[in-house]
Structure formats: C-alpha cells, structure tokens
Design a protein around this nucleic acid. Sequence first.
DNA 1: GCAGCTGCCTAATACCTTTAGGCAAGCCGC
DNA 2: GCGGCTTGCCTAAAGGTATTAGGCAGCTGC
Lengths: 189, 189
Amino acid sequence: MPRAGLTAERLTLAGAELADEVGFDQVTVSALARRFDVKVASLYSHLKNSQDLRTRIALLALEELADRAADALAGRAGKDALAAFAGVYRDYAREHPGRYAAMRMPLDPGTAAASAGVRHARMSRAILRGYDLAEPDQTHAVRLLGSVFHGYVSLELAGSFDHSAPDPRETWPRIIDALDATLRNWPAS
Amino acid sequence: MPRAGLTAERLTLAGAELADEVGFDQVTVSALARRFDVKVASLYSHLKNSQDLRTRIALLALEELADRAADALAGRAGKDALAAFAGVYRDYAREHPGRYAAMRMPLDPGTAAASAGVRHARMSRAILRGYDLAEPDQTHAVRLLGSVFHGYVSLELAGSFDHSAPDPRETWPRIIDALDATLRNWPAS
DNA sequence: GCAGCTGCCTAATACCTTTAGGCAAGCCGC
DNA sequence: GCGGCTTGCCTAAAGGTATTAGGCAGCTGC
C-alpha cells in the first residue's frame, strides 16, 4: 500500500477547493479524507482538528487575495487604485466563494496578527494616500472601504441583489464612483 | 408526565435566544431539546428539520428588525432618518448577534418574498426619498446603504475593528456623515 | 368518562469528530 | 542491499448531531 503523501499544505489547498465547490461550512474532515481516498483518522496527523483546517483555509485565502491585490495595486493611484482593489476583491469572491467565506472566519488575535490580514489593512491605507485624509479620518475611511467591499460582496454572493433590476454589474462601478467622490470630499468633523 | 407544551413559535424564540448566546451556527436541534428538557426527536413534530429551525429564526429576526426600523423611521426624513435607520440596524446586531447572523442566511426565493425582507427594502427606498435620486441611481444607492450597514456591522461584530484605534463608536457617525454627503451629492453617470 | 388525536418517547440508522494504539513503508546508516 | 527507526496511515472505539419510524399516554371534545 503506497502512502498518500498528505501534508498540511496539500490538505489546506484541497480544503479550499472543496470550500469553493460545496461551501465553506460544508468543509469537513471526513469529506477531505474521502477526497484523498484515505481514512478520516489519518488527517489528524496533519491537522490539529476541524477548526485548524478551517483556519488554515482562511489564512490561505487571505494570502491569495493579498497577493492579487498587491499585483493590482502596483503602479496605480487614486481612483484607479481604488477601482482595481475593489475589482480584485469582488472577482476573488466570485471565483472562490468558499475561500472568501473562509476569510470572514474570526481568528484569534495572535493568528490574525501573523496573517495576511495586516497586508490588507496596509493596502487600504496605501489607497487612501491618493486622497487627502489625516487621522483619524483615514482610519474611518479604511473602515468605510472595508465595510462597503465586504458588505457588497457578501450581499451579492448571498443573492440579495438577484431579484431586482438593474444588474449588479451596473451597480458596482457606480458604488466605486460614489466612494471616490466621498473620499475626495470627506465631510469635516 | 406533563407535556412540555412545545410549539414551532416557542422553539423559534428559544432558538433565537440560543443563537444570541452561543452563536447562530451552534444552534442545533439537540441543544434546543436540552433547553426544553425534552428528547431530541420530539422537536421533529414541530420542525421539519434543522434547516427549518434556522429559517424560522431568520424570519423572526427579519420581522423584529423591520419593526424596530419602522418605529425609528416614523416622523423622520433625510439624514435624520438615515441615522436612525443605521442606528437601529447596528444596535440590533449588537444586542442580538445570533439573530443578526441568522438574517444573513440565504432564503429560497419564495420564502424571501414572503419575509419581512421586503419591508427592509421598502424602508431603504423610503429613506432615499429625502434625497433626490432617480432610477436606476436609487437602486444603486439602496445597495450601497445595504452594503455599508451590513458590511460595517458584520466586520465590527467579527472584531475586525477591535485592534486598532480609534473606537468604532467614533467611526460609525462619521460613516453616516459620509453616506449622507454621498447621497446628497450623488455623482452623475 | 371515554375515544381519539397528537405530543412526546424509545429505538435505530447514519454521519462527523476525535483519541488511542498498531503495523508497515520508506529513509538512514552501514 | 539490509536492518532499524521514524512516522504515515490504519483499525477500533466513544461521543455528538440529524433524522425517521413506531408506540404509549395525556389532553380535549363529546
């Protein structure tokens, strides 16, 4: 009987694929074992437990999305950067709904601090350099960006926009326009 | 042996309380049975299955929030209405995180159409009457409002704002200000 | 006060999670 | 090449959740 060659990395990647196919909360140690044609208990040499698997998928997704965003942001500034960042975010969620859902999983503080989440935060701030915002408004604006992107993407993914015209494809650029206008003209305290 | 007096309504309410206490995805038929000191199988006379329970909790939350929002909106218009609506949304999520999470559960189209979700949509549109937006911009704006509220509230609930100053309490009103400004000055197509 | 309905129970199946302990595959030195 | 050791994957087992089938008894209506 040859060995299956499991590693935490391969399991995480397969778990991410599984998440995209069947939904993040259907990602189960058992399903993963089936996918590798291996007994369930075997995975516990590589994963601490089910929660560990989910956390690894979340961290993978954060890294992947941060990489894509960094690529998209290179050489752009202002509204151009804003639109590129937003586009990456949305596209990733549409291509990888399971991974996207994984990203929203609460991480414990230590894990979060060591994750690519901090790159995301830095990139948001980098985008805002194209606008003229001093602290604390910059932080408020970072949170606004995060809220809009995450909120829109998750409502769209949940199908909340499906049953009313117009097509969400039209709404997205208009929201970018609105955000850009808001940032250029941030209301004074 | 006296009967426990279970009904779908009591189960739903208890399920909602359970969700607020331990999180929506920890709401389980078994836990609910324990709470009523009753055997698990007994609940299946009142609930079709676990999914049915979750759906009922979601519908309850949608109703409750719609009621609160309607109260808050009465007699208000413009930014006043916007801030009141936003406040209700956020407060509800903080008071009832489990119910709030339940609301984000995907509903099948028929159920969604019969739910209080339509009241939410109507109220969003009502708020926008205080601003001068024609279709399709009004729909874009409805989606923006939904995205910001949902996005902010769920990021805050997930603790995403916990580890950076300033306090989210300061950010929220500034985001309302920014939204108000955006709506008053919606960028032309 | 009893007949019938129906609410709650027991029993059983199936799946997921997790731990403990065993066997052998494959790499390491010789 | 070969013997030993590590360790990857296995069997076994216990415990939790979901769900269905079928039974008995408590309540309601007459």
